[in-house]
């Protein structure tokens, strides 16, 4: 498909956070660069993995792309239904109608769910905000998506605290999927699931991708999951992309020392294969 345009084109994306002084009045004394000069293109229907060191800027990068954070520098060109737009330049008001086309599944399921809203309300809320559905039809859609992620109609009226970690994570997934967005950024979104439920959710994501040509950015620590679902992978360390390749190339021919160290630290489910991680030295 040589004529297809990227759905997302990220150029020179950087994000700096202020560092404050000690004391009661916290003054800004310096900046911390959490994301430094990240570039990538994403084709419609593609799945991009972002892996890397804890604290390397994966979540920050993902949040900047969807404008949950304001980038300090760079462009985020998104092919919306009405043509290309640089998300980095848009106001909150201009972004609002675009929000239904791009959804984020957050890393920390508990703090991203409103404790005072039932599961039914939580999953229905974005549909109501964007006036996409209501009443009995909406309820039916909510139940249907909950069932697809392995929850049930009987859970509708429960509050988040009454769920297990993995169940809460699935509520967040259902809330994003119900919108049928064209771009989904999933931050560690299957990490709290046992491998069998995880398999069910991954199969669902892949089915939806096939049906609606969804595009995914998948931030994950579990490299076996990344290997299974991603077409391409970015490896991040200290705010920078240190390696970017197709998935099969990355796993068969890792070039950067950090990538090698990462691949060597995947524990095998066979107790007779001991873990022998290679340390990474700069």
């Amino acid at each position: 498909m040589p004529t297809t345009k990227p759905i997302l084109s990220v150029k020179r994306l950087s994000k700096r956070f202020p560092i404050y002084s000690d004391g009661v009045v916290r003054r800004v004394v310096d900046n911390f660069t959490a994301v430094n000069d990240v570039n990538f293109d994403l084709m419609p229907g593609e799945t991009l993995g972002i892996v890397g060191e804890s604290g390397s800027g994966k979540t920050t990068c993902a949040r900047c792309v969807l404008r949950a954070l304001e980038p300090s520098e760079g462009e985020v060109i998104f092919q919306s239904r009405n043509g290309p737009l640089d998300l980095a330049q848009l106001s909150e008001k201009q972004l609002k109608p675009l929000r239904q086309e791009m959804q984020m599944i957050f890393q920390d399921p508990f703090s991203s769910l409103n404790p005072r809203m039932t599961v039914g309300e939580t999953v229905a809320e974005p549909m109501l905000i964007h006036k996409l559905s209501k009443g009995a039809a909406l309820k039916e859609q909510v139940v249907s998506i909950l069932e697809k992620v392995g929850l049930a109609a009987e859970h509708l009226n429960r509050y988040p605290h009454a769920f297990s970690g993995g169940q809460r994570q699935r509520i967040g997934i259902a809330r994003a999927l119900i919108m049928k967005p064209s771009l989904i950024v999933a931050d560690e979104s299957v990490s709290a699931l046992d491998v069998s439920v995880q398999a069910q959710v991954i199969n669902l994501l892949q089915d939806l991708q096939e049906e609606f040509q969804l595009t995914y950015i998948f931030v994950a620590h579990d490299l076996s999951v990344v290997k299974h679902i991603c077409d391409r992978v970015l490896v991040m360390r200290k705010g920078e992309v240190v390696e970017s390749k197709t998935t099969s190339e990355l796993f068969s021919n890792p070039e950067h020392g950090y990538t090698r160290s990462l691949l060597s630290a995947i524990p095998s489910p066979d107790p007779d294969i001991p873990l022998q991680p290679i340390a990474y030295k700069e």
């Binding site: 890397g52 970690g165 990490s191 620590h221 990462l262 630290a265």
Partner: peptide, 17 residues
């Protein structure tokens, strides 16, 4: 330890283990 390493990259996970 309830899922203590799920949010960690595998190298830091190895260090915690």
């Amino acid at each position: 330890a309830d899922e203590p390493t799920t949010a960690l990259d595998v190298t830091i996970q190895a260090q915690i283990l």
